[in-house]
Design a protein around this nucleic acid. Structure first.
Lengths: 341, 341
DNA sequence: GCCATCCGTGCAAGCGTTTGCACAAGCAGG
DNA sequence: CCTGCTTGTGCAAACGCTTGCACGGATGGC
């Protein structure tokens, strides 16, 4: 392929010259303004098509104030849950003709200089999915009137949110395990950094503890495989009498680590001990794991999150709204089943 | 916290009014132009600081032509390798004061309408890491003179590239397995969609096959865990005599699937059969897997990729350049070791 | 046949920045 | 005291698009 002559980008101006009409007419014709005659509209459209005209969004943003850009603050992408979330967000945003300016995708809080990019690029809104509590981005946005929607986070400041009903998920898992005859549970949490983890644990504990059943131990799984592994080792090291008969990890990645550690220590899952997780990431469904988990409705969360954002962008005074979506218990082989009815 | 009065964004104009000087003076003062007296510069800087001034990148782009935006075309983020790549890219780009417009993060080719966003937002350059051959984004860019750099892909069109030396990686793995006494290898490839996979396989085959050693079987692992699993099942089903004594999967995610399938079929790894992978993703290092793999120098690849991109942006006529980076064999427990020397 | 409508189109301002050029003031050398 | 340089600052154009307003011409009602 030969170097295209690299001709200058077509603009409204160049099109208008070619069509012999004014710039404003071209602009209106291209967006289908009814005031422009159908004939002219068609011929201008053809011209634009042929020239490969692409509107300059930046210039448009200068005058219209809308950039079509959404800021995205993502948690650690190496955590499969966030990876799935990312794919979903990218796809759904594209379907809504919104583009994502990605500001952060990793562990830890977002840097100040990075958060400032949100303002510099005049994003129309911001999607925050990082589990990190001190999300600087949300502050920056709130201060400048940029709508923020949290996905899978508790809403703060002037933000709306779309989340999974974490507490109910915890409860459901607890009921399932109790029905399966479990009486001593270990909970592997995420060390207080995440409200999700706290909610899940609260729901679980509330529904599990009771007559002859208790949450017998708690461990910090730090939201990582390694953290889960360490917790699993600790559990395996407990004297058999005091050892829990089931484990509820507040995320699958932790559950995987715990399960591997338990097995490495010679325990059988679920025969000796049941293991359950949360999120239902694809990895957790793989045969060696087959983790019973509570599936978050990721697609729906993203969809509702974008709805909320769109609403706020269209009408900045839209009140805060928190949407709670019910997930679904996915039963696999990592936990002993309740007796068939 | 009370609703901030939502005062209008400070601009050069508002600052200039406050400082009693012209807009151009403010602009120059803020970027440290030596022609503006130090005193004035300091006072303007203080003013800007106090007002929380953030330059409007869009407006700047209008006049300077630089947006500071990089388009990012990413492969399936749910593949841990791409997830790691993403984190690295986001971090390094931020360090260079570049922002990423994410256009695609999933399986399959990029949509045309999505690729056009590259032009509409006037990205300064584009980073393509998707393994998918028919990357429409690259075409769009090439046609409009937007610099493109491929990371971990063979360069095409007017693109530069920074990749791992896949062929050498394959060779190194082959030498390692041969030294370990393996004689019959199975290769699990990615079905021809990816030049990386092909290169790795070519290197491997070239170095493995020889006197009394051969690549005895090939399978399509489709770059997924499931594909690897299917290949593993097929290998396990082979009559013991003809069964390979080692497996080289062109990516870790495939190797993990294969390994699990082999074990599920009752084979012991590495006792009965060795399994090796490529990429050295964190998941592959986990105890149950401990996959011997060839580590791609992801950070270096991204760094060099961004270098190439920056060079092209600064000087559009910079010639194409393909950088090949050597990786590193990471020996773990999934493959029988060569005898100690 | 005249005025009121309406339709199709163009003019021009504005969005926030950058930057080439001009201009004013200060100063040194002649 | 004038010329010529330096230094500090402002003017205004340009980037590509949107949009309120105005204007010319056709149409319709009376």
């Amino acid at each position: 392929m030969e170097d295209a002559p690299h001709r200058p980008r077509p603009t409204l101006s160049s099109l208008s010259a070619a069509a012999g009409v004014s710039i404003s007419t071209v602009s209106r014709a291209l967006k289908g303004d009814a005031r422009i005659s159908a004939r002219l509209r068609a011929s201008i459209a053809a011209l634009a098509q042929e020239a490969g005209y692409q509107p300059d969004i930046l210039a448009r943003a200068m005058s219209s104030g809308r950039t079509g850009l959404l800021g995205l603050v993502l948690g650690p992408a190496t955590n499969p849950f966030y990876a799935a979330l990312l794919e979903e967000v990218v796809q759904q945003a594209a379907a809504r003709a919104m583009r994502l300016l990605i500001l952060h995708a990793g562990p830890g809080p977002i840097e100040d200089r990075t958060a400032e990019a949100l303002l510099q690029y005049r994003v129309d809104g911001c999607l925050v999915t990082s589990a990190d509590m001190s999300s600087r981005a949300a502050e920056v946005c709130a201060r400048s009137g940029v709508p923020v929607v949290m996905i899978n986070r508790v809403p703060r400041l002037h933000a709306s949110a779309a989340s999974c009903d974490n507490e109910e998920g915890g409860r459901e898992m607890a009921r399932f395990l109790r029905a399966g005859g479990h009486r001593r549970a270990a909970v592997i949490h995420t060390g207080g950094a995440s409200s999700n983890g706290l909610d899940r644990e609260r729901g679980f504990t509330e529904a599990f503890a009771g007559r002859k059943a208790e949450v017998a131990a708690r461990f910090d799984g730090r939201s990582t495989y390694e953290g889960g592994w360490a917790a699993g080792e600790a559990i395996a090291a407990m004297p058999q009498k005091r050892r829990p008969d089931c484990v509820f990890a507040v995320s699958d990645i932790i559950a995987m680590g715990a399960m591997d550690a338990l097995r490495a220590a010679g325990l059988r899952v679920p025969k000796d001990i049941s293991v359950t997780g949360f999120d239902s990431i694809p990895d957790a469904a793989r045969p060696p794991y087959a983790i019973t988990s509570y599936e978050q409705p990721v697609a729906a969360m993203v969809a509702r999150g974008l709805d909320l954002l769109a609403a706020r962008i269209a009408r900045p005074d839209t009140p805060d709204e928190a949407v709670l979506l019910r997930g679904r218990l996915v039963i696999r082989r990592s936990a002993r089943l309740p007796p068939a009815p």
